[in-house]
């Protein structure tokens, strides 16, 4: 027996498409390294080989297998994206809900903090950290991206709370003798669930792009591999000018496909969560 919610979700084509692209890449990142057990950071063949049966996606300047790099890179980029999104979602939702509910001086000071962080680019923070730390692991990169990318979430959640708080259905529930907690969980949060989930999805795609951005200017992780790091080396060794397409196209396509499928997923979920958009 399939629950009706699954049936409703299956009907949304956008959701199916975006979810399959996303899951396919995720699976590649999770299972790929096991199925294709080639070490991505040691020399395993001749340098700059085009794709062949032995090296499905060729090799780079140091004779490293590009497919192995790609599979490990997806895995690391996803974990950085997840961690960073979780950190910024936690900060953003907490600040948004507290400032929306409390109002007054609490709201004003929290929003001031939000504006300050808004103006602080993650690149600047990363450059400062890079100046002090020679070794940067993926977790550090996630934290830097996480603590700099939450302000829009805080603002969105706060404005949602502010507008929902004054809606009359909240008063109807209040008059029916529902307490604050029940109103919070029955009326407010379900109305924001789509927002929060979409924020998470967008944060995740943003964090993966941000990781690639930081890596490409040499401020990313120093150990291991990520999609951004592959692109960094490809760019540094002029892979584009030298037409070494197997080096930069696969990671680029993966990154774009990940980010786009997540964006599409967020719009599909928006349709699911607000029945009016479904066009029924």
């Amino acid at each position: 027996m399939i629950p009706p919610i699954v049936m409703d979700l299956i009907k949304i084509k956008k959701l199916i498409i975006s979810l399959s692209i996303f899951l396919a890449i995720v699976l590649a990142g999770l299972i790929g390294p096991i199925v294709y057990p080639v070490n991505p950071v040691v020399m395993t063949g001749p340098i700059e080989q085009p794709p062949s049966s032995k090296y499905p996606l060729g090799t780079d300047r140091w004779g490293r297998d590009v497919l192995a790099q790609l599979l490990h890179g997806i895995r690391n980029s996803l974990s950085i994206g997840l961690t960073a999104a979780a950190i910024s979602l936690a900060i953003g939702v907490t600040i948004g809900v507290v400032s929306g509910f409390k109002g007054g001086i609490t709201e004003n000071s929290l929003m001031l903090l939000t504006d300050v962080v808004y103006a602080l680019p993650s690149i600047l923070l990363m450059m400062l950290i890079a100046a002090y730390l020679e070794e940067r692991n993926p977790f550090l990169v996630s934290i830097v991206i996480g603590v700099t990318s939450w302000p829009w979430v805080a603002r969105a959640v706060r404005s949602q709370i502010l507008s929902l708080k004054t809606r009359e259905f909240i008063d109807m529930s209040r008059m029916a003798g529902l307490g604050d907690l029940r109103i919070m969980f029955e009326d407010l949060l379900p109305n924001m669930a789509s927002y929060i989930f979409m924020a998470f999805v967008l944060l995740m795609s943003g964090a993966m792009i941000a990781e690639a951005g930081l890596s490409m200017i040499g401020l990313g992780v120093t150990r291991g591999i990520s999609l951004g790091i592959i692109l960094y080396w490809a760019q540094l060794l002029e892979a584009v000018r030298r037409a070494l397409w197997w080096w930069f196209i696969p990671p680029g396509v993966c990154l774009v496909a990940l980010a786009t499928s997540l964006l599409l997923l967020s719009t599909a979920l928006d349709e699911y969560f607000s029945p009016r958009l479904r066009g029924e």
Binding site: E168, F169, S173, D187
Partner: peptide, 10 residues
Amino acid sequence: FQDPFASYNP
């Protein structure tokens, strides 16, 4: 309430 649209949780 006045507004029958806002009186229902959608």
